[in-house]
């Protein structure tokens, strides 16, 4: 029983990992007052380019690097649209997501019209080094470096204050000598890289292959997690774990005979329903960052 519990915990951490990466990426972006709905497409593009480059070079490290670069480029594209040009953030983010997904599908079909390519070796670095929880190293980094690191930076460094100032009141930040647009550019680039790592984790570490519905709304889940967490790091991690529990529970229930009559799709919908419920219970009348959705124009 205890071994099963450990196995369930290990599975849960794996499911939560992409959400922690992308959720913290979105959190950093939103802390500067920008909503990046490009997250779904950025995760998708990270998953795709990571897989493609790993497949072609034979090295997952190159794949991961390619995913990070893709994420940075996607973040900068969002920055040009929403920060420099000041376009509506909802529309530019969705447009970016649609463009990235269509572009990746286009490339995938062009290269692999018939077959389903697969990586020879999944990205198993570190996997065997820690005997108990058997996690991928990107999982350890997500929980032990990324989350505490972001928490610390946002809470107790000058950079964190700067991000907070831009997100809450950009006129005051600019008066205090902070460049609003430079801060937002940096946040979108870094956040985009984290989102892409979250996507690449799925292809490189979990599946070892690429499927057309690989992200399947996980980016939208991350947007919900950030609101649920009221723009704080640890509740994002907690939310990702709750989603993962529901997901793991759905898998467990599916193989339990008592629930064998329940259609698989009902189980698959459970995590989404759980997130909406969590939002309905804890996401009411939340305080959004003061400059949320607003483009900064120097007067």
């Amino acid at each position: 029983m205890s071994i099963n519990l450990l196995a369930a915990l290990a599975a849960m951490l794996t499911v939560a990992t992409p959400l922690v990466w992308a959720g913290i990426g979105e959190l950093i972006v939103e802390k500067t007052g920008v909503l990046n709905l490009g997250i779904e497409g950025t995760m998708y593009a990270g998953a795709f380019t990571g897989f493609l480059v790993a497949l072609r070079t034979g090295s997952p490290w190159w794949g991961l690097l390619a995913a990070i670069l893709t994420g940075v480029v996607a973040g900068l594209a969002m920055a040009v649209l929403s920060v420099t040009l000041g376009l509506n953030q909802h529309v530019s983010g969705l447009g970016l997501t649609l463009l990235l997904i269509a572009g990746c599908e286009f490339t995938f079909r062009m290269l692999y019209a018939g077959g389903r390519p697969k990586l020879d070796d999944k990205f198993d670095a570190w996997l065997s080094d820690v005997p108990v929880l058997e996690q991928h190293w990107l999982t350890y980094v997500a929980f032990l470096v990324l989350a505490p690191g972001t928490w610390w930076v946002l809470r107790s460094t000058g950079l964190g204050y700067r991000i907070h100032a831009v997100g809450e009141n950009f006129e005051a930040a600019e008066v205090a000598g902070i460049s609003v647009n430079a801060t937002r550019y940096a946040a979108l680039a870094v956040g985009g890289a984290f989102m892409a790592i979250g996507g690449a984790f799925l292809t490189l570490a979990v599946l070892g292959s690429f499927t057309l519905n690989i992200i399947n709304g996980r980016g939208w889940v991350c947007i919900a997690l950030v609101i649920f967490a009221k723009w704080r790091v640890w509740p994002v991690v907690l939310g990702a774990l709750i989603f993962a529990v529901t997901d793991a529970l759905q898998l467990q229930l599916a193989i339990t005979t008592a629930f064998s009559d329940v259609p698989r799709e009902v189980m698959l919908a459970l995590p989404y329903v759980a997130v909406i419920t969590a939002l309905a219970v804890w996401g009411r009348k939340v305080h959004y960052p003061g400059s949320y959705l607003k483009a900064y124009r120097r007067a």
Binding site: H90, W220, I223, A269, Y272, L279
Partner: peptide
């Protein structure tokens, strides 16, 4: 935005 988006995969 979030709730309408999340209901699409559902």
């Amino acid at each position: 935005v979030v709730t309408t988006l999340l209901l699409n995969p559902v």
